[in-house]
Design a binder for these strands. Structure first.
Lengths: 167, 167
DNA sequence: TCATCCTGGTTGAGGGTTCAACAACGCCCG
DNA sequence: CGGGCGTTGTTGAACCCTCAACCAGGATGA
């Protein structure tokens, strides 16, 4: 499946330093944001993203599958998450009349209110720990880097899909 | 607790673009690595990091609290994780004779073997999706950015500790 | 010595994610 | 029409993480 051990291009000392610095920053950063949201608004970041996606959609509603795609979430994960958000009264499910398999998730007024509240603290944290610690130059660079990594992973997905198609 | 809503410095359109690009890349990237490790070696990345930390320590052993610090993990999380790794036979716990509260985690030979095996695929994935898609210039930039973000979060921790000390 | 406080580590409950299995529906073609 | 086939979405079990509570052992000081 994987090439032989001897084929592996191990990381040089400098590469390891970059790699560790990157992972450390990402880990601390995401955990900080997650903790902030959980503490101040009672939801993890993944749930916040769901509310954001709905709030930006026409009619504050989206098909479950579209919502999953936007939120980079699996269908299963989204299903569980929406169940919880529904219990909180922040989201409602509506049947789709055109395609009776389908299901819409809609943001309630209560959900919108919670989102507005949560957004304030979240955006503040993001600004404080990302935008405020980087120079404009670094921000441009970060955007480029992010797009490059994303592109690399997207082509990877395409590759995986091809392999499946080989059957 | 938080400033008024009107105090919030919301993100501009460009800032939002950077933010989304960044989060998308990070999410896809970490999930890809996690999935790769889980699939090929039966452990999440956090567990892999534990094995790495132990393998790099003198005597392949570390006090639980030091291990937690190195792995950016809470004590609780580490305790659960080591319990699992012990069940697999990859790690063993030893009592600390000097401080009888303490406990050492040590990497077994089986654990080392599993780590060697896992490292090949993991490093390959990291190289393929990070180092190979970035220019040397971008890598230098990423290192700087990571250190800046990390520093910003570290001072945050210091701030939190100060607040606690205020009581 | 003993009371107090701090530190190291574990535990269990609750919640989030994954994975595989499944049900229900649309689609297509013979 | 009716039998495959792909799609949509849900479910339950297993696993991982968080949080708060807790125990046990050191450290400090009257």
């Amino acid at each position: 499946m994987m090439g032989d051990m001897s084929d592996v291009r191990w990381l040089s000392a400098e590469e390891q330093q970059v790699w560790r610095a990157f992972m450390t920053a990402v880990t601390k950063f995401t955990e900080h944001l997650d903790r902030q949201l959980q503490r101040d608004s009672g939801m993890p970041m993944a749930y916040y993203e769901i509310l954001v996606a709905l709030s930006e959609s026409p009619g504050r509603a989206l098909r479950m599958s579209e919502l999953a795609e936007v939120c980079l979430s699996s269908r299963s994960r989204l299903s569980h998450a929406v169940a919880r958000l529904e219990k909180e009264g922040w989201v409602e499910r509506r049947a789709c009349t055109v395609d009776r398999r389908g299901s819409f998730a809609t943001l309630t007024d209560a959900g919108f209110a919670v989102l507005e509240q949560a957004a304030a603290g979240h955006v503040t944290a993001v600004r404080e720990h990302l935008f405020d610690v980087l120079t404009p130059e670094q921000l441009r660079s970060l955007a480029e880097i992010s797009r490059a990594v994303d592109a690399g992973l997207t082509s990877e997905c395409a590759k995986a899909r091809e392999e499946l198609a080989d059957f």
